[in-house]
Amino acid sequence: MPVQQQIETVEPGEIRISSSPETIFAIPNLGTGVALAIYDNTLPVGAIAHIVLPESTLTNTHADELPGKYANLAIPALLEKFTEAGGQKRNSVVRIVGGAQLFNFGGGGGNILNIGARNATAIRAGMSKHGFVIQKADTGGNKGKSLQFILSTGQLIVCPIGGHEYPL
């Protein structure tokens, strides 16, 4: 009998986790934000964070803010949920998607708009600190991307907006 699928949208700044094979986490449009997805295929359990900023130290953070907004706070929170659900480092696959960037042809903005690349860098560094390697990455460019994280198979299906989808 085919699995009844349950699509859950992961909004900017959110962290989601599931051990249910019916779950599909979906992000309809990643801009400069980066989706960090971790999957343990032995259970299965999958967790995803829709991260929009590299670190929290530049802004005033509040306790009731979205937990997945900043890479430096999202990573420990995501890994805690993953571990609590039984996910193990040795069985896990880690992938990141997104981190697009505005143009800077006229010199308008400069590095202040390099947030996409900085998100990806911060996530790599943050995961490395916890002993995780990013196995696959699809970041950069100037287009948004959508993604679906299918827990029954662990597949990540990526689609550039207006383009064709492919597995990562």
Binding site: N142, K143, I161
Partner: peptide, 15 residues
């Protein structure tokens, strides 16, 4: 940048 409903022209713009 946050990514709500942008089309295929996406981020091909400057500030």
């Amino acid at each position: 940048m946050v990514g709500y409903g942008s089309g295929s022209d996406g981020l091909m713009y400057s500030l």
